Computed example of a mutant assay.
Amino acid sequence: MRLRAALSAAFLAAGAALAVAAPASAVANGNDVAPGEYPFAAKLSMPVIPRADGTTYSSGCSGSLIAPQWIITAGHCFHDVNRKPVSGPVPYGTSVLLGATTDEPGKGERRQVTEVQQAGTNDVALAKLDQPVTDITPLTVSPAAPATGQQVTLAGWGSLTEVSPKPSNKLQQGAMQVVGSDATTVSVVGIAPKKDTSACSYDSGAPYFVAEGNTGRLVSVESTGPNCPHSTPETTARVDILANWIATHTA
């Protein structure tokens, strides 16, 4: 699930109820992540999400490990039946896959989300896991504001296309560049492997990070953008402005 571009950054920053549209996909026109790389990248699966009319649907998001028992992702990934982001006990069953580049039995570490905390200032949430993950080094939260021209890596489990989108079974990556920022968001565009490498459905919450071995520094998380693939700016949520809030919850 991913917010559509029509929702402005000002609307997000105001902490208003977020209207969520159709899910966003994995990294379009990206590359497969090699086995063993980016073990902190998380795939979130929500098989039974309730609607206000009593029906249900399935969806998913991406995210990253930032503490042994905490995942960071997009705030709009967790909401009530009216699509309003919620904090507290997880509103529907959510499983998490870490430490794998393919989603198949016997691969990676699997956990369940028990609790959600919404940042409120932008489209970011923390999801607590039922058990700590002790064999994967979490991403660190960048303390500095992103700089225009900075290059970052996107790693997500989203769809490869907006045509009948579905979460990917392979972790995908792309090289991106910061082209601007404001008080709560960062705008990025694709630079490799193609100019229209971009986030897609189910990439919501995916990390944009500066890689450092098998870990790195988290700069922002995926929030919203045009249908993929596209070469225009994608809106992502800054994490440096949340460093103290994140540390308080994950300590």
Rank of each mutant, 00 (worst) to 15 (best):
I49D: 05
C61K: 03
C77Y: 08
L12Y: 10
I66W: 01
L18G: 00
A17H: 13
I246E: 02
M1Q: 11
N244F: 02
S159P: 03
L97N: 10
G190N: 04
R110E: 13
P207M: 03
G190Q: 04
I71R: 01
K43W: 11
A247M: 01
A251W: 00
K195Q: 15
A16V: 11
N82I: 03
N214E: 10
K128T: 08
T101V: 13
G75I: 00
G158P: 03
Q173L: 02
F40K: 06
T235E: 14
P226R: 05
S223L: 02
V179D: 05
A192F: 09
D203W: 04
A34L: 15
V239E: 06
G54I: 12
P39M: 08
A5T: 14
V113A: 09
D103G: 07
L3Q: 08
E222G: 06
T55Q: 12
R217W: 14
T73C: 11
P146H: 07
M1E: 14
S45G: 09
L160Y: 12
D130V: 02
P229G: 06
A41P: 00
P132N: 10
V210D: 06
S8G: 14
L3K: 02
D103S: 15
S58T: 11
T250Q: 05
A22C: 13
E37G: 13
A26Q: 13
Q150L: 13
L129H: 07
I191D: 09
A9G: 12
S87C: 06
C77A: 12
Q118M: 04
T153N: 11
A199W: 06
P47Q: 03
W70C: 10
A175Y: 08
S45R: 09
A145N: 09
V188E: 02
V81F: 07
G108T: 03
G174A: 12
T140F: 05
A192D: 08
N169H: 11
P91V: 01
D80F: 05
P193D: 00
S187L: 12
A41I: 01
